[in-house]
Amino acid sequence: MTETAIDVNNISFSYGKLKVIDDMSVAISPGTSYGLLGPNGAGKTTLIRLMVGLLKPSSGSIRCLGKAASRELAHQIGYMPQLPALYNELSVRQNIDFFARIYGMKHKKERSQRVDEVIRLVDLWQKRNAHVNQLSGGMKQRVSLACAIVHRPPLIFLDEPTVGLDPELRVHFWNYFEELIKSGSTLIISSHTFDDAAHCNKLAFMRLGKIVAEGSPRELKQATGKLDATLENAFLYFIRREDKADGK
């Protein structure tokens, strides 16, 4: 296993003239959950899209599991985009089975068992033959997660995975994420809620394409100097400190 699961070195990225990622560096340890926390427009999704190879940085470099973006690396990545990104005309099972196939799970019996396993994991066994367009938003999120993990990837990118989920389902998702981490997977999770952030081993507070602070939830709260500080307090503390340094 490499020392770092992901190495992001001084990357920048712009959409036209708009700079979305500004000279950013991140190192993520394997077998941990790393949360990207920030408001809309902070650059969380763009950073994930850069890390999975959908976008190319205008400068700097990214290495995942010690390798640059490649087809070989793609087998080791699981990606859950912000949209459910599913085939609405197909059933839950057909969607998951399709992604299992394109990730190279050729053995029919083994694939079928794994597809059944992830359907149960996301608690959709009763709905396995239902078409996706008949499912609720939360159920679609669960199918989307199943599609991202069906091939047992060691590196999993989850872009706002808990958006639109009810509290019970959110707990269910996090229990499962913790199981994935225990089994050695590395999770990169973007979110704009502090509930999600509290579950991560390490966090990056992002704003306007920059990381304003990085550390474990505990470290970030302690940095405020207040004993009862919440993550929300910590986020505001670092934002204000950054503004002050910039003379705002």
Partner: peptide
């Protein structure tokens, strides 16, 4: 538009 192309592009698909 439904985002599945993005998923395919991340997968080991040419």
């Amino acid at each position: 538009s439904q985002g599945t192309m993005e998923r395919l592009m991340v997968a080991p698909v040419t």
